[in-house]
Amino acid sequence: MEMEQQTVRMISPQDLLADTLRLKNGGYRLVAISCTNKDGMELSYSFDKNYELLTLRFVLTEEEQEVESISVIYPYSFLYENEIKELFGVRIKDIAIDFEDSLYQIPVKTPFGRKEGDD
């Protein structure tokens, strides 16, 4: 089986915009932004060029920590960022089109941001 080359590069949240801009200039396409809620919020930004996947990753340990939106570089990241904001409750600021918690029509606030027994 072909084992795809998958690079995961750990970065610090402050370097996110600079690293993303470098990838954008390198001709990369944004594939997905994923969030994992386990020992802090882990954000993974995946990019693709010539079918090779490159992921930038950092973990937010403090709850109140804010993250810059990359929508100034990749305008279409606004959907991913709004989704993460509404489902996980990660504070992403300056999203190009900020839905302010009205993209998803769901009754529960930040359903994926909770842990077992939070209710």
Partner: peptide
């Protein structure tokens, strides 16, 4: 302006 979430099942 899109809006989704009508069939969000988690």
């Amino acid at each position: 302006i899109p809006r989704i979430g009508y069939i969000h099942r988690g």
